[in-house]
Nucleic acid binder design. Structure first.
Lengths: 196, 196
DNA sequence: TTGATTTTGTTCAATTTTCAACATATTGGG
DNA sequence: CCCAATATGTTGAAAATTGAACAAAATCAA
């Protein structure tokens, strides 16, 4: 349950991500990674079987760190806690150089997809415990919210965080609240509009 | 002749300097340094005998790196090479977080003094090989130039580098050129003004 | 001042990283 | 296609780092 990445692994990850920001995954060599990380080439093989395993572990590791910033003790809250949401944005802001590469790195949509998946888990829980208008397809709802939130985060990061975490949190909460209100109280209108 | 600081030493140095930016030298403990550097406390003692030795080595190391950015192969040029001057400013810009603490850190004027000394060496060489008006006291000249250049660098760094390295280089070269011209051609005027 | 707490400096066994060498595989230019 | 250069993956011995324990010194609040 170590909250920190072991020193050597971390420097290898960071070198690897740095390189991913510069060139495509296939063009990156273990030699480059080791050199950039100030680590012996053998040490890389001590931690990872090959380049692909390194990519896997890198993604899982940073996804897990991100997850911890959302839900420190696996707490799934019905109402997205403002405090937790804020700590997530702040975490991303802090580690922007890493996550902006991971989330929109050239030719590696794996992280993006895994992050979507993770977000989906949270959203599903949120939806399930909300008493929304049963006329709305839950699957559609989940998809819509997940892709929306993930995309919003991505936009925020690749545009070098044009606004403060606090503002983003307010925006997100406002969006969610409006949506929920709209879907419970005026659910029927939505259907009418859709069919007209 | 390793151009790089060994990994562990570097992280200890960086942790130490970071702490120097936050509190006075006396208040810093080896425990803190080791923890901040993600290094075992014993490892610190493996490299340094104590806190004071760490300070010494830290200063000498970073002074030496700075020196290399000025004179890559110990080359003392009569005319300060624009290229070298630029590379120095760029080096300082790159490592601003480190050098701005070192040069104006709370209660540790050692680095500042040692840097002055180093600058003095270069200036002395420069003066000696210039054919300035013999009426000007060489000692005074050296002192004036050394303190001027060092102070200019310090100002630039602690003010978060308000202008680009190129501009600074142009400014410095302009200053030196004017001074030299003024002292050779119009040396006597200077004396007259001084005594009037 | 006293006593509790933290820091210091040292030791040594266990662990991790490095280094050099090796055979093999892959790549890219002529 | 061929060949030279580069990258890969593995090995074992050497070197560096860690972790834990220890006694002594320094710090600090009561």
């Amino acid at each position: 349950m170590d909250r920190r990445i072991a020193k050597t692994r971390q420097s290898i990850f960071e070198a690897f991500i740095e390189l991913m920001g510069e060139k495509s995954f296939e063009k990156i060599t273990i030699n480059e990674i080791a050199e950039r990380a100030n680590v012996n080439r053998g040490t890389v093989y001590l931690h990872f079987t090959d380049k692909y395993n390194l990519l896997d572990q890198c993604i899982e590791t940073y996804l897990h760190l991100l997850e911890e910033s959302c839900m420190p003790d696996g707490a799934l809250n019905r109402v997205p806690s403002k405090k937790l949401l804020l700590s997530t944005f702040e975490f991303l802001e802090q580690n922007a150089t890493i996550y902006s590469v991971l989330i929109s790195g050239q030719g590696v949509p794996v992280f993006r997809n895994r992050m979507m998946e993770m977000t989906k888990q949270g959203v599903e829980q949120y939806i399930k415990e909300s008493d929304l208008n049963p006329g709305v397809n839950e699957e559609v709802m989940v998809q819509f919210l997940s892709v929306g939130i993930t995309g919003l985060l991505e936009w925020w990061m690749v545009h070098s965080m044009p606004c403060k975490p606090e503002e983003m949190v307010d925006q997100v909460l406002l969006l969610l609240a409006s949506l929920e209100r709209g879907l419970t109280v005026q659910g029927s209108h939505l259907f009418i509009n859709r069919n007209s």
